[in-house]
Design a protein around this nucleic acid. Structure first.
Lengths: 100, 100
DNA sequence: TTGGTATATCGGGAAATTCCGATATATATT
DNA sequence: AATATATATCGGAATTTCCCGATATACCAA
Protein backbone atom coordinates (compact mmCIF):
# COMPACT_ATOMS: atom_id res chain seq x y z
CA UNK A 1 0.00 0.00 0.00
CA UNK A 2 1.86 3.04 -1.27
CA UNK A 3 0.74 6.08 0.72
CA UNK A 4 1.74 8.59 -1.94
CA UNK A 5 -0.17 6.72 -4.65
CA UNK A 6 -3.27 6.60 -2.49
CA UNK A 7 -3.17 10.31 -1.74
CA UNK A 8 -2.54 11.12 -5.41
CA UNK A 9 -5.57 9.07 -6.34
CA UNK A 10 -7.60 11.14 -3.89
CA UNK A 11 -6.18 14.46 -5.15
CA UNK A 12 -8.81 14.99 -7.81
CA UNK A 13 -12.32 16.31 -7.52
CA UNK A 14 -13.83 13.95 -10.09
CA UNK A 15 -12.28 10.88 -8.49
CA UNK A 16 -13.46 11.90 -5.04
CA UNK A 17 -16.89 12.42 -6.53
CA UNK A 18 -16.90 8.94 -8.05
CA UNK A 19 -15.86 7.34 -4.77
CA UNK A 20 -18.61 9.19 -3.02
CA UNK A 21 -21.23 8.18 -5.57
CA UNK A 22 -20.17 4.56 -5.20
CA UNK A 23 -21.15 4.66 -1.53
CA UNK A 24 -24.81 4.57 -2.61
CA UNK A 25 -24.97 3.07 -6.09
CA UNK A 26 -28.73 2.48 -6.08
CA UNK A 27 -29.32 6.15 -5.32
CA UNK A 28 -26.65 7.63 -7.54
CA UNK A 29 -26.91 5.31 -10.53
CA UNK A 30 -30.60 4.61 -11.02
CA UNK A 31 -29.83 4.30 -14.72
CA UNK A 32 -28.09 0.97 -14.29
CA UNK A 33 -30.48 -1.74 -15.50
CA UNK A 34 -32.51 -3.20 -12.61
CA UNK A 35 -31.87 -6.82 -13.44
CA UNK A 36 -28.15 -6.19 -13.02
CA UNK A 37 -28.15 -5.18 -9.37
CA UNK A 38 -25.31 -3.47 -7.55
CA UNK A 39 -23.52 -6.33 -5.80
CA UNK A 40 -20.60 -5.98 -8.20
CA UNK A 41 -20.75 -2.20 -8.28
CA UNK A 42 -21.43 0.13 -11.17
CA UNK A 43 -20.29 -0.17 -14.76
CA UNK A 44 -17.91 2.29 -16.37
CA UNK A 45 -20.49 3.73 -18.73
CA UNK A 46 -22.86 4.74 -15.94
CA UNK A 47 -20.07 6.47 -14.08
CA UNK A 48 -18.88 8.19 -17.22
CA UNK A 49 -22.35 9.52 -17.99
CA UNK A 50 -22.68 11.00 -14.54
CA UNK A 51 -19.30 12.76 -14.60
CA UNK A 52 -19.70 14.25 -18.06
CA UNK A 53 -16.04 13.52 -18.84
CA UNK A 54 -15.01 11.25 -21.69
CA UNK A 55 -15.06 7.48 -21.60
CA UNK A 56 -11.30 7.19 -21.85
CA UNK A 57 -10.74 9.58 -18.97
CA UNK A 58 -13.11 7.72 -16.69
CA UNK A 59 -11.71 4.34 -17.64
CA UNK A 60 -8.26 5.62 -16.70
CA UNK A 61 -9.47 7.20 -13.47
CA UNK A 62 -11.10 3.97 -12.41
CA UNK A 63 -8.05 1.87 -13.05
CA UNK A 64 -5.96 4.45 -11.20
CA UNK A 65 -8.31 4.15 -8.21
CA UNK A 66 -7.97 0.40 -8.47
CA UNK A 67 -4.18 0.51 -8.55
CA UNK A 68 -4.38 2.57 -5.37
CA UNK A 69 -6.52 -0.19 -3.88
CA UNK A 70 -9.53 2.04 -3.29
CA UNK A 71 -11.90 0.18 -5.61
CA UNK A 72 -12.24 -3.35 -6.95
CA UNK A 73 -13.57 -4.46 -10.31
CA UNK A 74 -15.21 -7.42 -11.95
CA UNK A 75 -15.60 -8.01 -15.64
CA UNK A 76 -18.97 -9.50 -16.58
CA UNK A 77 -19.52 -9.91 -20.27
CA UNK A 78 -18.79 -6.62 -21.95
CA UNK A 79 -19.16 -4.67 -18.73
CA UNK A 80 -16.68 -3.92 -16.00
CA UNK A 81 -18.22 -3.16 -12.63
CA UNK A 82 -16.40 -1.08 -10.07
CA UNK A 83 -17.18 -0.96 -6.37
CA UNK A 84 -15.51 0.60 -3.34
CA UNK A 85 -13.05 -1.41 -1.29
CA UNK A 86 -14.32 -0.33 2.10
CA UNK A 87 -11.50 -2.08 3.92
CA UNK A 88 -9.03 0.21 2.19
CA UNK A 89 -10.74 3.29 3.60
CA UNK A 90 -10.72 1.90 7.10
CA UNK A 91 -7.07 1.07 6.74
CA UNK A 92 -6.36 4.54 5.38
CA UNK A 93 -8.25 6.21 8.19
CA UNK A 94 -6.11 4.33 10.70
CA UNK A 95 -2.97 4.95 8.73
CA UNK A 96 -3.53 8.68 8.99
CA UNK A 97 -3.69 8.42 12.76
CA UNK A 98 -0.65 6.21 13.09
CA UNK A 99 1.72 6.60 10.15
CA UNK A 100 1.24 10.06 8.70
CA UNK B 1 -11.15 22.45 4.62
CA UNK B 2 -10.60 21.60 0.97
CA UNK B 3 -10.27 17.85 0.62
CA UNK B 4 -8.40 17.98 -2.67
CA UNK B 5 -5.86 20.45 -1.29
CA UNK B 6 -5.25 18.26 1.73
CA UNK B 7 -4.71 15.14 -0.34
CA UNK B 8 -2.41 17.03 -2.72
CA UNK B 9 -0.36 18.16 0.24
CA UNK B 10 -0.02 14.53 1.31
CA UNK B 11 0.85 13.34 -2.22
CA UNK B 12 4.58 13.80 -1.84
CA UNK B 13 7.14 11.59 -0.17
CA UNK B 14 9.18 14.44 1.29
CA UNK B 15 6.16 16.15 2.80
CA UNK B 16 4.91 12.90 4.33
CA UNK B 17 8.39 12.40 5.72
CA UNK B 18 8.40 15.86 7.30
CA UNK B 19 5.00 15.32 8.89
CA UNK B 20 6.23 12.05 10.31
CA UNK B 21 9.40 13.58 11.68
CA UNK B 22 7.36 16.29 13.37
CA UNK B 23 5.58 13.63 15.43
CA UNK B 24 8.74 13.25 17.50
CA UNK B 25 10.76 16.43 17.17
CA UNK B 26 13.11 15.71 20.06
CA UNK B 27 14.09 12.40 18.48
CA UNK B 28 14.23 13.52 14.87
CA UNK B 29 15.73 16.97 15.32
CA UNK B 30 18.35 16.67 18.05
CA UNK B 31 20.24 19.42 16.23
CA UNK B 32 17.79 22.09 17.33
CA UNK B 33 19.41 24.05 20.14
CA UNK B 34 18.41 22.68 23.57
CA UNK B 35 17.47 26.01 25.07
CA UNK B 36 14.86 26.43 22.34
CA UNK B 37 12.67 23.43 23.14
CA UNK B 38 10.04 21.94 20.90
CA UNK B 39 6.81 23.49 22.17
CA UNK B 40 6.56 25.61 19.04
CA UNK B 41 7.84 22.90 16.75
CA UNK B 42 10.95 22.80 14.60
CA UNK B 43 12.52 25.58 12.60
CA UNK B 44 12.72 25.53 8.81
CA UNK B 45 16.49 25.18 8.71
CA UNK B 46 16.50 21.99 10.79
CA UNK B 47 13.88 20.42 8.57
CA UNK B 48 15.70 21.50 5.45
CA UNK B 49 18.96 19.97 6.65
CA UNK B 50 17.31 16.64 7.31
CA UNK B 51 15.60 16.44 3.92
CA UNK B 52 18.63 17.41 1.89
CA UNK B 53 16.48 19.53 -0.42
CA UNK B 54 17.01 23.25 -0.85
CA UNK B 55 15.87 25.90 1.58
CA UNK B 56 13.42 27.40 -0.88
CA UNK B 57 11.81 24.05 -1.59
CA UNK B 58 11.32 23.24 2.07
CA UNK B 59 10.00 26.70 2.85
CA UNK B 60 7.42 26.23 0.11
CA UNK B 61 6.53 22.73 1.22
CA UNK B 62 5.95 23.92 4.76
CA UNK B 63 3.69 26.77 3.75
CA UNK B 64 1.81 24.39 1.47
CA UNK B 65 1.28 22.04 4.42
CA UNK B 66 0.12 25.01 6.41
CA UNK B 67 -2.34 26.14 3.75
CA UNK B 68 -3.75 22.61 3.87
CA UNK B 69 -4.12 23.04 7.63
CA UNK B 70 -1.83 20.15 8.50
CA UNK B 71 0.77 22.23 10.34
CA UNK B 72 0.86 25.49 12.25
CA UNK B 73 3.69 27.97 12.51
CA UNK B 74 5.03 30.63 14.82
CA UNK B 75 7.60 33.22 13.99
CA UNK B 76 10.10 33.86 16.83
CA UNK B 77 12.84 36.27 15.98
CA UNK B 78 14.44 35.16 12.76
CA UNK B 79 13.09 31.64 13.07
CA UNK B 80 9.80 30.18 12.01
CA UNK B 81 8.80 27.06 13.91
CA UNK B 82 6.45 24.53 12.41
CA UNK B 83 4.51 21.89 14.31
CA UNK B 84 1.80 19.42 13.42
CA UNK B 85 -1.85 20.33 13.81
CA UNK B 86 -2.97 17.06 15.35
CA UNK B 87 -6.61 18.05 15.27
CA UNK B 88 -6.43 18.21 11.48
CA UNK B 89 -5.30 14.61 11.28
CA UNK B 90 -8.09 13.43 13.51
CA UNK B 91 -10.56 15.36 11.42
CA UNK B 92 -9.09 13.92 8.24
CA UNK B 93 -9.19 10.41 9.60
CA UNK B 94 -12.89 10.82 10.32
CA UNK B 95 -13.51 12.55 7.03
CA UNK B 96 -12.17 9.52 5.18
CA UNK B 97 -14.67 7.32 6.94
CA UNK B 98 -17.61 9.61 6.38
CA UNK B 99 -17.12 11.88 3.39
CA UNK B 100 -14.77 10.12 0.96
C1' DT C 1 24.42 51.67 9.73
C1' DT C 2 26.60 47.57 8.23
C1' DG C 3 26.82 42.87 8.01
C1' DG C 4 25.14 38.19 9.13
C1' DT C 5 21.67 34.63 9.48
C1' DA C 6 16.86 32.63 8.76
C1' DT C 7 13.05 32.47 5.94
C1' DA C 8 10.09 33.77 1.98
C1' DT C 9 9.31 34.71 -2.72
C1' DC C 10 10.30 34.73 -7.71
C1' DG C 11 11.36 32.68 -12.31
C1' DG C 12 11.95 28.64 -14.63
C1' DG C 13 13.26 23.79 -16.64
C1' DA C 14 11.88 19.08 -16.21
C1' DA C 15 8.56 15.79 -15.07
C1' DA C 16 3.87 14.45 -13.90
C1' DT C 17 -1.10 15.04 -14.23
C1' DT C 18 -5.44 16.21 -16.52
C1' DC C 19 -8.35 15.28 -19.94
C1' DC C 20 -9.15 14.76 -24.77
C1' DG C 21 -9.91 12.23 -29.49
C1' DA C 22 -8.65 8.24 -32.00
C1' DT C 23 -7.98 3.60 -32.02
C1' DA C 24 -7.62 -1.18 -30.22
C1' DT C 25 -9.58 -5.02 -27.78
C1' DA C 26 -13.21 -7.90 -25.72
C1' DT C 27 -17.64 -9.63 -25.75
C1' DA C 28 -22.36 -10.36 -27.55
C1' DT C 29 -25.64 -10.77 -31.39
C1' DT C 30 -27.14 -12.02 -35.80
C1' DA D 1 -18.19 -13.67 -40.38
C1' DA D 2 -20.00 -9.07 -39.75
C1' DT D 3 -21.79 -5.69 -36.74
C1' DA D 4 -22.64 -3.39 -32.46
C1' DT D 5 -21.56 -2.13 -27.78
C1' DA D 6 -18.48 -1.60 -23.58
C1' DT D 7 -14.09 -0.83 -22.06
C1' DA D 8 -9.04 -0.18 -22.45
C1' DT D 9 -5.08 1.86 -24.39
C1' DC D 10 -2.42 5.27 -27.06
C1' DG D 11 -0.66 9.92 -28.37
C1' DG D 12 -0.77 14.49 -27.19
C1' DA D 13 -1.91 19.58 -25.79
C1' DA D 14 -2.55 22.21 -21.71
C1' DT D 15 -1.83 22.63 -16.96
C1' DT D 16 0.24 21.58 -12.58
C1' DT D 17 3.85 19.88 -9.61
C1' DC D 18 8.64 19.27 -8.32
C1' DC D 19 12.62 21.28 -7.14
C1' DC D 20 16.19 24.38 -8.20
C1' DG D 21 19.13 28.95 -8.03
C1' DA D 22 18.75 33.77 -7.38
C1' DT D 23 16.95 37.34 -4.92
C1' DA D 24 14.09 39.74 -1.47
C1' DT D 25 12.65 40.39 3.21
C1' DA D 26 12.88 40.06 8.26
C1' DC D 27 15.35 40.14 12.23
C1' DC D 28 19.54 40.37 15.05
C1' DA D 29 24.16 41.92 16.54
C1' DA D 30 28.02 44.93 16.42
Amino acid sequence: MDQVEIFKALSNKTRLQILNWLKEPEINFPGQAEHVGFEDGVCVGQIQLKTGLTQSTISEYLSLLQRAGLVQSVRKGQWTYYRRNEAAFETLSQLILTKV
